[in-house]
Amino acid sequence: MKSRKLLWLVTFAAISLFAAFYLFSNGEAETPQKPLARVSVVDSTKCIAPKEFMRANHMQVLHGWERSVVRDGDRVHIASNGSRFQKSLGTCLGCHNNRLFCFSCHSYANVKPKCWNCHLSPMETQ
């Protein structure tokens, strides 16, 4: 019985040592560099996707943008027709510049996402 407990402890100690090595070791590889691609500034007045799609999926699009912009630094959205947009809430609100654009539907359906906790909402600007 005692020996089994000892075995447990030894196993655990081994795992934690291994984990500690993994945790505190430094594993960041440096890759060779390549010149930056530069693209001309484009502005679009068309929406990134058809209305019906956006109605159902805008939150998913925005959520995906948020993740890829913040985490991966991928800033460019390529629409299905090949046109390019910057992934930004401003891209949407630049065209949909009705101050109540978000709020009329969202208050009707009582859906309250937390976007405006940080992003300045159209209602707050003037």
């Binding site: 109605r55 999926n57 939150m59 998913q60 539907c105 009707y108 359906a109």
Partner: peptide, 9 residues
């Protein structure tokens, strides 16, 4: 599926 909620309401 994320149904459009507006016509539902």
């Amino acid at each position: 599926v994320r149904l459009n909620i507006m016509p539902v309401k």
